[in-house]
Simulated scan of single mutants.
Amino acid sequence: MSKLLLNLRMVPEDEADDVRGFLDDHRIEYYEIEPSRWGISFGGIWVKHDADIPQAKRLMAEYQARRRDAAREAHDAARRDGTAETFGDIARREPLRVALTALAIVVLLGLMALLPYYLMRR
């Protein structure tokens, strides 16, 4: 029975290509379901044979650990260089979005603070 190895929701194309590559390199048979036209299904990479699932999961775990470590190193390097994105960068680039988000937070906190008072008055 086939088993889902990777849900392609919000997966960068280079990561999906890497997964296809290591499955091909280890001769693990798989098939891919394309995302639906209306976004109901995001697609996925499925391992065909039950016998290959443990090896595919092990390879996937190793790949994700390497990718995680590389992303952390890149982020740390960007922080050291001063090129990492900060809240100030986002606020300068998208001031309306930041202001509306802050306003929504304040409104929700206000409603939460008033809710017990309203419920007790009933």
Results as ranks from 00 to 15, higher is better:
1 M>C: 04
1 M>S: 05
1 M>G: 02
2 S>P: 14
3 K>R: 15
4 L>R: 13
4 L>M: 15
5 L>P: 00
6 L>G: 03
8 L>C: 09
8 L>I: 10
9 R>W: 03
10 M>F: 13
10 M>D: 15
11 V>H: 01
11 V>Y: 01
13 E>N: 10
16 A>R: 01
16 A>C: 01
17 D>Q: 08
17 D>F: 04
18 D>M: 05
20 R>W: 05
20 R>Y: 04
21 G>W: 06
22 F>L: 06
23 L>M: 07
23 L>Y: 05
24 D>Q: 08
24 D>E: 10
26 H>D: 06
28 I>Y: 10
29 E>A: 13
31 Y>E: 05
31 Y>T: 02
31 Y>P: 03
31 Y>S: 09
31 Y>C: 03
31 Y>Q: 03
32 E>N: 04
32 E>L: 00
33 I>C: 09
33 I>D: 14
35 P>M: 02
35 P>T: 05
36 S>H: 05
37 R>W: 10
37 R>Y: 12
38 W>D: 13
38 W>K: 11
39 G>R: 15
42 F>S: 12
42 F>K: 08
43 G>V: 09
43 G>E: 08
44 G>H: 09
45 I>P: 01
46 W>T: 03
47 V>H: 05
47 V>A: 00
48 K>P: 00
49 H>D: 13
49 H>K: 15
52 D>M: 00
52 D>L: 02
52 D>F: 00
53 I>W: 04
54 P>Y: 01
55 Q>G: 09
55 Q>M: 13
57 K>P: 00
57 K>A: 07
58 R>V: 03
59 L>T: 03
60 M>N: 01
60 M>Q: 00
61 A>T: 14
62 E>Y: 00
62 E>N: 10
63 Y>Q: 05
63 Y>S: 02
64 Q>L: 12
65 A>R: 15
66 R>F: 02
67 R>W: 07
67 R>T: 11
67 R>V: 10
68 R>N: 15
68 R>C: 13
68 R>F: 15
70 A>Y: 13
71 A>S: 07
71 A>P: 02
73 E>G: 07
73 E>Y: 07
74 A>C: 03
77 A>D: 11
77 A>T: 14
77 A>K: 15
77 A>N: 12
78 A>M: 08
78 A>K: 13
78 A>Y: 08
78 A>C: 04
80 R>F: 01
80 R>M: 12
81 D>Q: 14
82 G>W: 07
82 G>Q: 12
82 G>H: 09
83 T>Q: 05
83 T>E: 03
85 E>T: 14
85 E>S: 06
85 E>M: 10
85 E>N: 06
87 F>K: 11
87 F>Y: 11
88 G>R: 08
90 I>E: 04
91 A>P: 05
91 A>G: 09
92 R>D: 11
93 R>N: 07
94 E>M: 05
94 E>G: 01
96 L>C: 06
97 R>Q: 11
97 R>I: 11
97 R>S: 09
98 V>L: 09
98 V>A: 09
100 L>R: 14
101 T>S: 12
103 L>M: 12
104 A>M: 10
104 A>G: 12
105 I>E: 11
105 I>W: 08
108 L>K: 04
109 L>W: 07
109 L>S: 06
110 G>Y: 06
111 L>E: 02
111 L>H: 06
114 L>F: 14
115 L>W: 11
115 L>Y: 11
116 P>E: 06
116 P>F: 08
117 Y>M: 09
117 Y>E: 06
117 Y>P: 01
119 L>A: 14
120 M>R: 15
120 M>S: 14
121 R>M: 12
122 R>L: 12
122 R>V: 10
